[in-house]
């Protein structure tokens, strides 16, 4: 095999697999795939040193569409699986991706604790405010009055929550929002997120053309945050709560040691037998 240094630099397309996505034409997730591969190419990460961990849902299929190591696991548990991988293999670049249902509903507890644990990984939630793969049900980010789901024909009647604000409260050390209508901007955010040492959370506004066609109007509302990123939590919280959820960019980044268990030297497993001897 050629040494890593001798290999020609990889282009974004080298990080894409030849499997055709199941996504509908016009799905925002294509742009996320594009942004991730661009970011990896920009960072010159060797493919074999990257792991893409996902759960279940339309967007979670992304693991198969990248050409890095991947794990397409069970619904909602991608962050937990990634935590175990990172604990055992701190040398890997760990990316976790999924949808709003996967990450914020069934995986909500893991989201909170992954933020809090602050292991060095990047989590991308492709937020389209709907469960797509199960044919259009409301998620934790769906507006209370969205009445197009057969499951909640009068709307959920329940307020959505703001995932970026939750990430901030739970202890994520990098929080950003991107938009799939701006794949280059999203790729830039992802570069910063991957380079950040700690848990980086990126909410990617990713319209669902099939179940939420009205989201195709998002491009008219999305704009950058007026202010540069802050490291002050209270300030970030204020901005997030004042915002309508359509501002993009890095909101918050702070320097807090990433958590990494273990780190000891390899030892002899026989050493513990002595403690049982009478």
């Amino acid at each position: 095999m050629a040494l890593a240094a001798d290999r020609p630099p990889l282009k974004a397309r080298d990080y894409k697999s030849d499997i055709k996505p199941v996504w509908c034409p016009g799905c925002g997730d294509f742009a996320v795939l594009s942004a991730i591969t661009k970011a990896l190419a920009f960072l010159e990460r060797p493919r074999e040193e990257v792991a893409m961990i996902t759960g279940i849902g339309c967007s979670s299929r992304i693991a198969a569409y990248t050409r890095v190591y991947g794990f397409h696991g069970v619904h909602g548990r991608a962050l937990a699986l990634a935590g175990g991988l990172k604990a055992a293999r701190p040398d890997l670049t760990v990316l976790v991706a999924g949808g709003d249902g996967d990450g914020l509903s069934i995986g909500g507890n893991h989201f909170i604790h992954a933020c809090r644990r602050n292991m060095d990984m990047t989590y991308i939630v492709m937020d389209n405010e709907v469960y797509g793969m199960t044919k259009g049900q409301a998620s934790p980010t769906t507006d209370a009055d969205w009445d197009r789901s057969k499951l909640t024909p009068r709307g959920t009647g329940i307020r959505p929550f703001n995932p970026a604000a939750l990430a901030l409260t739970a202890g994520a050390t990098f929080i950003a929002r991107g938009f799939t209508g701006d794949p280059n901007g999203l790729a830039k955010i992802l570069v910063s997120a991957i380079e950040h040492r700690g848990f980086s959370f990126v909410q990617a506004l990713s319209p669902c053309k099939t179940f939420r066609p009205e989201q195709m109007e998002w491009k008219k509302h999305v704009r950058g945050f007026a202010q540069p990123p802050t490291h002050i939590g209270a300030l970030a919280a204020e901005r997030l709560h004042a915002d309508d959820g359509m501002s993009t960019g890095v909101i918050y980044q702070t320097d807090y040691p990433a958590f990494q268990p273990g780190g000891g030297e390899p030892g002899d497993p026989g050493q513990f037998e002595a403690e049982f001897r009478i």
């Binding site: 937990a80 175990g84 990172k86 055992a88 507890n109």
Partner: peptide, 16 residues
């Protein structure tokens, strides 16, 4: 954070 996580962590580490 729970057993759902612990078994998935095991699977992730073993995948590694």
């Amino acid at each position: 954070e729970d057993e759902l996580a612990s078994i998935n962590m095991v699977i992730g580490a073993s995948f590694g």
